[in-house]
Design a protein around this nucleic acid. Sequence first.
RNA 1: GUGGCUGUAGUUCAAUGGCAGAGCCCCGGGUUGUGGUCCCGGUCGUUGCGGGUUCAAAUCCCGUCAGCCACC
Length: 308
Amino acid sequence: YIRPGVDVLQKRGGLHTFMNFHKPILTDSGGFQVFSLSDLCKICENGVEFRSHLDGSSHFFSPESVLDIQKAIGSDIMMVLDQCTDYPIDEKAAGEAMNRTIEWARQSVEYWKTSFECEKQALFAIVQGSVFPDLRRECALKLAEMNFPGYAIGGLSVGEPKELYKAITELTLGYLPVDKPRYMMGVGSPLEILFAIKHGVDMFDCVMPTRIARNGTLYTTAGRINIKAAQFAYDESPLDRGCECYVCKNFTKSYLRHIFRVGEISALIYNTYHNLYFMKKFMDGIRVAIEKDEFSALMASWEAIYSN
RNA sequence: GUGGCUGUAGUUCAAUGGCAGAGCCCCGGGUUGUGGUCCCGGUCGUUGCGGGUUCAAAUCCCGUCAGCCACC
């Protein structure tokens, strides 16, 4: 919306053509940007006022307008506008954000059903309610009544304790329809993904693999490594002996450490590529294990390697 | 040859007589609904060298060495 702009994406034939990516694309509504860029946003009953970080211009997003944008750019799975809350937050404020999220979801699904080709572009709802079980239950049940094509759990992994995160995830999943995709937003680490899948989550998205890659941390089948570490200065082995990706087949840790430290752009690309390759293989491994009924064993083996 | 300026952490620089500090670098950790940002913690000193004054010197004095500038 801000850059390159809806008009560019539309004239270039939508996201799939623009990116030459011909698989399903999920787009977020901007609800999380409201949360993470809260200094530039003001929330009211009808939507959110957003100030561009590029030129300071003011824009207003409503539940309907964010769907218009996602429609125009050709999203396959659109997300409703929601209100993500910070942690910690008191129950009253969390309840207000939840009620607003529910009301916006109601408006969203109404607009979607009347103005969209529903078979072509799906719309997912987002459960809020912070760490309060009563709020999570109420939100999940009310959204479930609206019969969305899929449901997301939002507002987690924003700083709450690990045990609270686990309890709320499990509880919320229990109130969402099992015949619809259940999507955990913004998660996460390998172990968090395993935990979530164990309890029924079907979809994820997360910046973690790419962000930590850009900052020098790589996933391997032997745990996380920090390529900046001095111990790799003379290391002639690949990032991960068990990995067949382009980076592992061609470069040593010593070289990857060097190009990262001197700021070579290629280092960011290689690191990112490797971590995404790892995640793909990680997820494929989970699918195979589930098919063979070996999920528990696989989870135990990863837990022995990763501590977070 | 003469005059002047400057020498402080790996580096760029603070500290004008009173516990020698900061940024960067370096070392370690973090990053949860994308942007290299950012956050947290840590190591590092014969204050060019030698003497002197002083209770106390990076600081004042003498000498010396090095770099730079100007002039001859």
